[in-house]
């Protein structure tokens, strides 16, 4: 995926975050906002197909990603979530 490759590049040159050590007990905590009809259904399908993927992702179901609000994303980061994605 192009956007991931791009992002990877971004990470290398990123000056946004101060360098830090990663504690040994840390595991990524990722929240996904998923549209009920698209991404949530796709996640269902991934399960039905028994596709194995990272257990670090937890889903919050939305009726539609159009419902997604800034406040949801910001609040997630504020609480210490490591990453957020929306899928619809």
């Amino acid at each position: 995926m192009a956007d991931v490759a791009e992002a990877a590049e971004q990470i290398l040159v990123s000056t946004v975050e101060a360098p830090h050590d990663t504690p040994a007990d840390w595991t990524p905590n990722v929240l996904a906002f998923a549209c009920h009809y698209c991404a949530f259904a796709a996640a269902d399908l991934a399960g039905v197909m028994r596709l194995s993927y990272s257990p670090s992702v937890k889903i919050i179901r939305l009726p539609c990603t159009g419902k997604l609000d800034h406040i949801h994303i910001l609040s997630a980061f504020e609480k210490g979530v490591d990453g957020v994605f929306a899928a619809g």
Partner: peptide
Amino acid sequence: DPARLEMYNLSAAMG
């Protein structure tokens, strides 16, 4: 880092 946030598009069939 804004890379911690992403938007993806996918359909119901894209398990």
